[in-house]
Structures are given as structure tokens and as C-alpha cells.
Computed example of a mutant assay.
Amino acid sequence: MFNLEMPPLNAETWAILGTLVLLEGLLSADNALVLAVMVRHLAGDLQRKALAYGIGGAVVLRILGVLLASYVLEYWWLRAFGALYLAYLAISHFLKKGHSEDEAAANAKGRGFWATVVLLNLTDLAFSVDSILAGVALIPRDMPREQGLTIVVIGGIIGLILMRIAATVFLRLLNRYPAFDNVAYALVAWIAVKLGIETLEAAHEVFPAVPTFHMPTPLFWGVMAAIAVIGSFLATRRPAMSEARAEVRAEQVVRRMDEVVADAADGRVDGR
């Protein structure tokens, strides 16, 4: 069921992997930032313990998401759900009034330890679904499922690695230029359109009455490139803080995560 096959390393495959690196980096950094904010109201030792559960949940849910991606690639009606969810995700991001950090802090404030842990893992679930569905949506519909699943697995591994290896880079980028969040979700919105069109194509094969469309590959990647270039230009025009302050804030989050991992390795997650 989970047979993997390496896809051909052509221009489209590299474009997919490059897009996954960008999206996984931004979403993983946003995830790490939100987790750190959500535990601020707890006492010092409980912050570390709750964050350990949150990081552990992120890893487990990402692995489960990669396994479930096999079903999404196989059944057109699950792809329809994925397209609708990604579209909802992008629309809700642009319609909401507050920043995700402020919203996360407000939701977690006043909650007890276990309630915060549950909220952390629900947040992890949302980010895992976001990234896995985006990976699935990037897979060409005519690509063999085994090759598509391989790309999704690579994307999942990239996400786990970027949660630590490149966390400082992407956190610093988001701290200094918060509008890069908008670039990521604009890309997600266009990916949702692609997945929706492919879902209609697949549904048309089963139900001929369903209208069908086709999106040329050059059109999809052309719009993706335009969103990335224009969005990056607009995002960098208004820095929210100095580069030095952005780096300090990013290093604080990463240092806290490193302490959690070190404590877990020593059997001291509870701070004792």
C-alpha cells in the first residue's frame, strides 16, 4: 500500500520540491512560533513540559499525515475535500483580523496544563494537514501514485528537518517580514485551485455529467512564480522590526526548543 518509487528528476519534480521547501519552511516556522506563544501563560517548568508534548505531537502527526496521503492520492473525493480545505485555509487567513500569534495567545490564555497540551496538538494537526495536503496538491494527476507518495514523504521529512535545522532562518524571516505569511497562503490558495480542477477531471471520469477543465502545467507554475516574486517584493517593503531584533526573537524560540529536546533525551521533560 505504501510502496514508494523515485520520480524522474526533471524540471517539474525539482519545482515541486522547491515549492515544498518554501511552504514547509514558512509553515513549520509559523508552527514553532505559535507553539512557543501558546505556552507563555504557564509556569516556567510547565512551559517546557507542555512544549515537549507539542513538539512530540508535531512529529507524530506529520508521520501519520504522510501515511494518510496515500488515500488522498487514490480517491478523488478525498482530493475534493483537500481542495476545499486548502481554499478555506487561505480565505480564512486573509479574512481574519488578528495575527496568528495574538490569536494563539488569546486562545491559550487562562487554560490549565492539559487543556494547553490538547490545544497545542490541535494546532499541530492543523499545520500537519496544511502541509501534507499542499504536497498532495502539487503532485501531477498523471504521475504514478507510488512516485507521488514519494514526493509527499520527502516533503514531510523536509518539514520535520526544517522545524529545527532551518528554524532560525525562517523564524527570523517571519519576525522581520510578517507579510511572508501572506505569500505562503497565496501560494496555498492557487494550489487549492489546481487541486480543485484536477478533482473535477477525476470526478468527470466517474460521473460524465460533472463539468471538467484542464490547467496547463506552464500556467500553474507561471502563476506560482509570479506569486512568489511579486509577493516577496511586497513583503520586504515593510519590515516589522530590525534584523537584529528579529534574529534575537528567532533564537529565543529555537533555544527553548533545543532545551526541550535536551531535557527529553535526559529524561527531564518535567524540568526536574
Rank of each mutant, 00 (worst) to 15 (best):
V152F: 04
L149D: 07
T150M: 08
I161T: 05
N175L: 03
R164I: 11
L173I: 12
V169R: 15
V152Q: 08
L171V: 08
Y177G: 05
G159R: 15
G159E: 12
I158G: 01
A179F: 02
L174F: 07
R176V: 07
F170C: 05
R164G: 08
G159Q: 15
L171P: 09
I161N: 00
G159L: 08
V153K: 05
I151T: 05
V169L: 15
R172D: 03
M163D: 11
I165H: 10
G159S: 15
A167P: 08
P178V: 04
T168M: 05
P178I: 04
T168A: 14
V152N: 03
A167M: 07
N175S: 09
T168Q: 13
L174N: 10
L174M: 09
L171N: 15
N175R: 12
D181T: 11
F170V: 03
I158R: 02
D181I: 12
R172H: 12
Y177A: 06
L171Q: 14
I154G: 05
M163H: 12
N182M: 02
N175M: 05
L162H: 14
D181Y: 12
A166N: 09
V152E: 05
M163R: 15
P178T: 11
A179M: 03
R176C: 06
R172T: 13
T150F: 11
I154C: 06
N182S: 11
I157E: 02
I151F: 00
A167Q: 11
I151A: 03
M163F: 05
M163L: 12
V153G: 08
A167Y: 10
I158M: 04
R164Q: 13
I154R: 08
I161D: 02
R164E: 08
G159A: 15
N175V: 03
F170R: 11
D181V: 10
L160F: 04
A179E: 11
G156H: 02
I161M: 09
M163S: 14
L173K: 14
L174Q: 13
Y177R: 10
T168D: 15
I165F: 13
V152K: 02
R172N: 10
P178G: 03
A167V: 06
R172S: 06
L149E: 07
G156K: 08
V169K: 15
V153Y: 09
M163C: 04
L149W: 02
F170L: 01
R176P: 00
I161Y: 00
L149A: 07
A179L: 11
I151Q: 09
T168E: 14
G155F: 07
I154N: 00
Y177E: 06
R176Q: 10
V152W: 07
